[in-house]
């Protein structure tokens, strides 16, 4: 079954992913996604009923840290690569009106 990706869907996914695509990019994205989803749909040939989804390959479990402070004042390193900063903070466009 061929997947059809609408303009609205591309628009919506662009909002989720915070990507602004040009008209041409949008067309390409639609086609790419349709083809990929058709390809991915081959997975539907597999009967996976009753199969537990596997997110981790190994039975690694209960990996913990103790509650001990190990880090000191990190502001210099934290801000080292900041594109814009002020008062030891990252500066961004105003977030509320």
């Amino acid at each position: 079954m061929a997947n059809i990706i609408s303009d609205e869907t591309i628009e919506y996914v662009g909002i989720l992913a915070k990507l602004e695509l040009s008209g041409e990019e949008k067309e390409n994205a639609k086609q790419d996604m349709e083809k990929m989803l058709d390809y991915i749909d081959t997975l539907n040939e597999l009967d996976t009923a009753g199969i537990e989804p596997m997110s981790h390959v190994f039975p690694v479990q209960n990996v913990f840290r103790e509650d001990v402070v190990t880090n000191g004042d990190g502001h210099e390193e934290t801000l080292k690569n900041a594109p814009l900063q002020k008062d030891n903070s990252f500066e961004v466009p105003k977030t509320i009106g």
Binding site: N88, F90, E91
Partner: peptide, 12 residues
């Protein structure tokens, strides 16, 4: 932290 005068917010 929202700057009153500037059109910016500061992140801590």
């Amino acid at each position: 932290i929202h700057d009153e005068w500037d059109d910016t917010s500061l992140v801590d």
